[in-house]
Amino acid sequence: MEEELFTSGRNLPNIDPSLQIWHWPISVYLFLGGLAAGLLFFAAVFTVIKKEEETPATVKYAVMIAPIALVLGLLALFYDLTHKIFFWQLYTTVRIESPMSWGAWVLLIITPLSMLWVFSYWKEVFPKMDLKFGFLKKFQAFVVKNRMNMAYVLIPLSIVLGIYTGILLSAFNARPLWNNAILGPLFLVSGLSTAAATIILFSKSKSERSLFSKIDIVLIVIELALIVHMIMGYWAGSEVQLEAMQLLTNGEFTVMFFVFVVILGLLLPGLLEILELKGYKVPVVVPAILILIGGLVFRFVMVEAGQLTRYLY
């Protein structure tokens, strides 16, 4: 029998025996960032193709969640910093090679932009709340006039934000579970799917709900395909990736991953959405909430499991 013993005379807090540097705020942020990216993407796209009238929840109501999610996400990120008073150092430099630098700059632009977007619909969403000051009214008129321009800027920015939440993890080759090129697109699609679910929750129009059910089904299929690709990638990979895969397929995170993410978070809501479109009575709240929970659990699984994986030497 081949025996191998590996001992290290080191016991660094949060590093040994396994990394615990990134905690729940990072998972929560990745979820909220992806959700906000998806909401802003849909709002911008449906504005650009001039379908605002048919999709009021998309462009006016659900998108109100985006700035809230972004602010909460930013607070979570800030909370996880250990040298907080120096956070402004993020904005003294642009580091092309660092995904986190990209994210910091994109968030700096997209967060106020999402607030302006919501502000541009203020009069329609809250007709009774009068903007008391003249300059506010003038400013709102200006924002409304530039809504289309904002939409053009938001489309690329929201895609970058959605992909970056995945690339933030996949850029670390030291953590084999994260280090795969699929994670960026996968988190983007998952973010779009959670956004579609949120829109379904907010929508009062049947046609909009069924449109987003259809969109969501497509996104779920893509997401499942990307997950299969991800597993295949590990499977064909090196020893460290095989070991990483075990955490998802045959280890600590298998139940979380397969039951909560794949079955309850993707397959079941996808099936329920198909049944609903076929005319069966399914409360749309159920698949939508399942997707949101699945998306959140997925971020937790990837962040936690990834930190257990490492190079062997």
């Binding site: 590093i15 990394l19 540097i21 990134w22 996880d80 910093l81 250990t82 040298h83 907080k84 120096f86 956070f87 150092q89 993020l90 660092s98 986190m100 850029a171 670390f172 080759n173 030291a174 953590r175 930190q307």
Partner: peptide, 9 residues
């Protein structure tokens, strides 16, 4: 800023 990215990397 203590973001931990370098530790993860």
């Amino acid at each position: 800023i203590g973001c931990g990215a370098c530790i993860e990397s």
